[in-house]
Structures are given as C-alpha cells and as structure tokens.
Design a protein around this nucleic acid. Structure first.
Lengths: 132, 132
DNA sequence: CGGATATTCAACCTCATGGTTGAACATAAC
DNA sequence: GTTATGTTCAACCATGAGGTTGAATATCCG
C-alpha cells in the first residue's frame, strides 16, 4: 500500500472539477463514447479528451477501444478509498450536530427555568479578522 | 442548487493534496497554530500559510486570531457534502463486488460439480455487502 | 481507392498552484 | 522604547491544468 497518498491525490483531484463530475454522472447511467461524453459541454473534443485522461489516470473510468470509437465505462471502485478517507471525519460533524442539539435543549430548559433568574448574559467575543 | 458545484470543487480541491490532508489530520486531534501546522513539513511558513488559506476557503478550517498567533480548528462539516456526492457512486462498487462474488461462486459450483457429485450447495453465504 | 467520422497529438496560451525569498506587520517580552 | 516571535504579504519561479487550434491517426463506408 505504498503510495496510498498518490491515489487519494489523483482521485480527489479528478473529482474536484465540475465537468469531470458531470462526466462521471453520465457514465453512471451507461457507458459513453468520448464524443458522447464531450457533447453536453461547450469545449472541444481535445479538451474533453484531456478530462477523460484525468479520470482514467485516477482509475475512475476504463476505456474499451471499439473500432474508431472509444467506449468509456465507470469504475467507481477507487472512489471507495476517498469515501473512507472522508468518513474518518464524519464524527466531527455529527458530533458537532449532537453538541448543537444538546446546547439547544439546554437552552430551552434554561429559558423555561430562568423566568426568575436575571443574570444569563453570555456575550459574543470579537470575531476573527477576515483574511486577505 | 446554485453553486453547490463550487463548493464541491473547493472541498475536493482542498483535500486533493497530501500536505493539506495531513494538516487536517493534525487538526482532528486538536486546534493548532499556523506554526504548529507547518512544523511537520519541510516547507516555509509562507507555503504553509497558503495551504491553510486553501483549507479556509473550502470552509474546512476556522481561524481565531489570538494575539500574534492564529489558532486554526477543524470544521469538518463541509466535507459532508463531499461524502454525500461520493456516496451516490457507492452502489457501483458494491454492485460490482456482488457480481464478482456471484461469478466466483458460480465458477466454484461448476468446478466442484464437474469434479465430484452434483451437490453444489452450501458453500459460502451470499454475504451481500450492503453498506448503509 | 477516397471521403467521412472518431479520437488523439503537438504546440501554444493563460492562469492557478506550490514553492521560494525577503520585507512588512502585529504583538509579546524585556 | 528595543527586540524577539508569529504570521502574512509581495514578488518571483517552475510546473501543471484547462483551454484552444490545426494536423495526424485510425477506422468505417461507399
């Protein structure tokens, strides 16, 4: 499992582009030729060809040359690695949602209990400066 | 569904780099200053600063300026969109694994039927690997 | 054979990325 | 105040990405 990192680089790099994501979506329906893949976009065939090569390098599509047309089919398997990587972070947002929910509940409880309590004043801290 | 695409572009783009993925991993432990984030890598602070800005633009980290140090903390929430996108393709690899398994099973059954008697029955369970 | 179709290749352009260096800025410490 | 620390900024460089054009290649069809 040498360069797992390179695999993730190429996968995430490949799907970090709207055009390529749309191509994958087309391929999820059925295999397409290069021309068919290019058709929806306002780019030249050469440009589409490059996109397809990026997807191919990431292992996300396979190509079968049939005469003069190249038939591309989806191979989603490598995406699995990407999903697994992201999934490690899943607990961070679910956790945050849980905390939010807990705070919300606590707040509601406090409000209903603090009809008599005057001092409840949390205040907002200075916001972080905008970069740039 | 306005600029969902830009969000995915920036998220996937941000995590399509080994250094930045490692930074996120550090941040998953606890918040870090810019210097701390940069320390493990053989790059200048300026370069690290740029990486951090990429992560920030993707919304994956938040920065709190504390005096002269900038404390960065993970915000994994935007990754959720990325995970959801990839997950649409999950069925394609699980499906393929199922087909592979079925073929394999059929092959074994045929072989054992040819070699011995017609009991190609209870080898392996279907074991449908259906995540979620 | 010759012509049409499908795709790539090579050269080029522009712009973003990842890296450097050195100066600037802001704040903490003396 | 002066100095040290943490971070960014600006300029620059090299490389790659995404796009174009025009030519080359391979294949099908008449």
């Amino acid at each position: 499992m040498v360069e797992h990192n390179e695999q993730l680089d190429s996968i995430f790099g490949a799907i970090a582009d709207t055009t390529r994501r749309a191509m994958l979506l087309s391929l999820a329906q059925r295999p397409h030729s290069v021309g068919e893949l290019a058709a929806p976009f306002d780019i030249t065939l050469a440009a589409a060809s490059k996109h397809i090569k990026v997807l191919e390098r990431a292992g996300l599509i396979e190509r079968e040359v049939q005469g003069r047309t190249h038939l591309c089919r989806l191979n989603a398997a490598p995406m699995h690695a990407g999903l697994e990587w992201i999934r490690h972070y899943e607990r961070f947002w679910t956790q945050r949602l849980d905390v939010l929910e807990a705070l919300l509940k606590a707040d509601l409880a406090k409000e209903s209990a603090a009809a008599t309590d005057p001092v409840a004043g949390g205040h907002n801290k200075p916001k972080s400066k905008r970069p740039r």
